[in-house]
Design a protein around this nucleic acid. Structure first.
Lengths: 138, 138
DNA sequence: ATGAGAATGCTATTGTCAATAACTATCCTG
DNA sequence: CAGGATAGTTATTGACAATAGCATTCTCAT
């Protein structure tokens, strides 16, 4: 079948993202994390007083979708919620969460290294800037 | 918040694909098509005797998921199914389907042009090859 | 020519991520 | 202190994808 879509940036983007996410999901499943959960863990460690809504804004996850996400992480004993004031709550990693975060970090790091290795050297360094332009324009 | 993910190819890929698909979905909605439906329409016109399973293989859509997809296109009067033998069936565009396909083609073409325009010239030509390497490796 | 295995189409269900709307309670600011 | 913004929540929906299982038909090697 003629590869009608070979040169279509939109289609290539969709397929590449799909393949990438499928593989990453498979790898993260070995430590019982979904992609969205792992990204939250990776983010949280960076600060000590991150609120749920702040995480949502950074990762572009709607407040409504943060609720079950954080709920699962809490049920798994990976995060704790601590009230900041009557309205906001800080999200922080438990000891178990820190361990899991380190594992997730290792998995995603090696995965992304491998991803880049698949790209011909002359294209490699252009990928992230090009993607950045697409994502931040929306 | 520190942008922990700024330089992560996996994350950038996910976000870019997401933003792209959201916008494309919005544009295709004006002609009552989902992204997956549009890609089938675009593909079908290219040949006259494409079978459902062949479409699925090309677009990486599982047989099980092709069923409702083609069902919707048929309900909308855009495609017809014609038995090839007792087992396979050809998918072909109705007149209405050809018109719709042309509209979808126009929308996706200008959309993808605009996408590329958002990327700095020095990165632009590297995007599709880089994505291709990621998608075809999986 | 036939019998085994592959291919096709289908049903039904599940999962992941995301979007929307509506609600409550709290906060911040003028 | 009143009004509007913000935080968290509930519930529902949608799009795309994956899995398992089933019936029929085709194909190919013996």
């Amino acid at each position: 079948m003629t590869d009608v879509f070979r040169n279509r940036p939109g289609y290539a983007l969709r397929r590449a993202a799909n393949a990438m996410m499928a593989e990453l999901a498979r790898r993260l499943a070995t430590i019982d994390l979904r992609i969205a959960e792992a990204s939250v863990l990776l983010l949280v460690n960076d600060r000590l007083d991150v609120t749920a809504s702040e995480i949502g804004r950074t990762l572009d996850i709607q407040r409504a979708n943060m609720v079950p996400l954080l709920g699962r992480l809490e049920d798994a004993g990976l995060i704790e919620r601590r009230p900041i004031d009557g309205k906001s709550q800080a999200v922080l990693l438990t000891t178990k969460g820190q361990t899991r975060r380190a594992e997730a970090d290792a998995i995603t790091d090696t995965f992304e290294d491998e991803l880049l290795q698949r790209i011909a050297p002359e294209h490699r360094d252009h990928l992230v800037p090009a993607l950045g332009a697409l994502w931040r324009a929306d």
